[in-house]
Design a protein around this nucleic acid. Structure first.
Length: 412
RNA sequence: GGGGAGGUUCCCGAGCGGUCAAAGGGGGCAGACUGUAAAUCUGUUACUUCGGUUUCGAAGGUUCGAAUCCUUCUCUCCCCA
């Protein structure tokens, strides 16, 4: 594959949104090119919503280009106003540091840092020591407030209020691009569509200061067809860290995407061949469930490895297929001693203890509304006591909340 | 610095002395229908040892009784300088 064919791949897979100079970039990408995308470590883990640029980077690397992952240890201390309606809360420096470490670890699932050329950098390294006066004089002079105010990102914030510190975010991101261009000859910045303004202004800065051409490429902001943000559930983001989102839950998140999104997501969030993604996405009726399972499996495999993905898939099968002998070990679980169960535990307490419900009121409500089941039998009396008589042949008890949430009690 | 408007339960947003754990909508959860889909309909949505207990920016105060009145503080937005 020619190294510039990646553009075609990105287009076909649904990444490509805008490019500052497509013909020029095609030419540039004929030879291995260093490019970067930035991630602000404002949380303790990456989540599914971060992943479009990450997958794009992986495709780029496969095509022979040299990825630079920029972790915004410096910019995280400010907050990007684009697309946000509220100012970001400030993080402590220690928090940011530990977030940066976690990001590095997670990104190495996608990007091979062993290979020459790929690298990860932290912009705190050059932003933190900046001198205000010098920065204003050398960098700030190239920015026009009038022009900045024409950017969509700022226009929106003019309504709700924009602090000066956030207004400066664009300068810092532009400076990042300049810095990477100078130090590593990085000629391309990629990112979500909301980054367009920031990317363009970085290019302009490079042109003014270095008299060099650089490129920008943005990706579609992926929304689910129900309009919700990608990778978010009502309970919060779906994280890649398995302490925060269990492997099983991650699997289930993708297993439950909307029909209309399956083909699109396969292309964006797996590395399966395009034709395969299209074929799977076109399945109709109940058949599309097979495609969803593949999506969930492939995705989980990338993040947590084959073994964990297998377990999650088996656990889901065990939960949703009646009477199966599938392996239940991937299901969320907790151990109870035989003695504890002999004494008996009230069903409301049990559902709360297992975190299927977050409070007893909620648990009671669930039971009363006929949403709770033990070993597939509905129980709607909140006074029911679960004791050893419920233990199955497999030495476990399967709790079910609603139709989709399962929990396994393992008897020891 | 001066003047004005405002901070209500997950979100938006009513309430402006008791009938308020607080209308309505959104979202969520559950039930029916299904394909572990969507759409739709129904119920539900602070916590609880089910006696009660904490909620309406924060702290005080008035009152038998406050989200609602008063004082101070705090934050946000708008106008003037």
């Amino acid at each position: 594959m020619a190294t510039n064919e990646v553009i075609k791949v990105l287009k076909e897979r649904g990444f490509f949104s805008q490019c500052t100079d497509e013909a020029g970039l095609m030419e540039k990408l004929k030879s291995p090119t260093r490019f970067y995308a930035g991630f602000d470590p404002t949380g303790p883990s990456l989540h599914c919503g971060h992943l479009v640029p990450v997958f794009a980077m992986a495709h780029m690397q496969k095509a022979g280009h040299l990825p630079v992952v920029l972790v915004g240890g410096g910019t995280a201390r400010i907050g990007d106003p684009s697309g946000k309606t509220e100012m970001r809360q400030m993080l402590t420096i220690d928090q940011i540091k530990s977030n940066v470490e976690e990001f590095k670890k997670q990104l190495s699932n996608f990007i091979d840092f062993e290979q020459g050329g790929a690298m990860i950098v932290d912009n705190a390294d050059w932003l933190a020591p900046l001198n205000y006066i010098e920065f204003l004089r050398d960098i700030g002079r190239h920015f026009s407030v009038n022009r900045m105010l024409t950017f969509e990102a700022y226009k929106k914030r003019m309504e709700t209020g924009l602090s000066f510190i956030e207004f400066n975010y664009q300068l810092l991101q532009s400076y990042d691009f300049l810095e990477l261009n100078r130090k590593h000859d990085c000629a391309l910045q990629i990112g979500g569509d909301d980054q367009w303004g920031n990317i363009v202004s970085g290019m302009e800065l490079i042109r003014r200061v270095e008299r060099k051409e650089s490129y920008g490429l943005t990706f579609n902001l992926v929304a689910r067809s129900d309009g919700k943000k990608m990778g978010k559930t009502e309970k919060g983001a779906v994280f890649l860290n398995k302490e925060m989102t269990s492997v099983y839950d991650l699997f289930q998140y993708w297993r439950n995407v909307d029909d209309a999104d399956v083909g699109k997501f396969l292309k964006l969030f797996t590395f399966l061949p395009i034709e395969e993604c299209d074929r799977l996405g076109a399945l109709e009726g109940a058949e599309i469930n097979a495609a969803k399972e593949i999506l969930a499996y492939e995705f989980t495999k990338i993040i947590h490895g084959k073994e964990e993905a297998d377990r999650a898939r088996e656990a889901a099968k065990a939960a949703f297929t009646a009477g199966g002998s599938a392996d239940k070990s991937g299901m969320p679980s907790k151990e109870y001693t035989f003695d504890q169960l002999s004494e008996g535990i009230n069903i409301v307490d049990l559902f709360t203890e297992t975190e299927l419900c977050s409070s007893k009121s909620e648990s009671r409500r669930l039971v009363t509304q006929n949403g709770a089941a033990v070993n597939d039998e509905k129980i709607n009396d909140p006074n029911t006591v679960i004791n050893s008589s419920y233990i199955t042949e497999d030495k476990d008890i399967i709790l079910k909340a609603g139709k989709k949430r399962f929990f396994r009690i393992i008897v020891i």
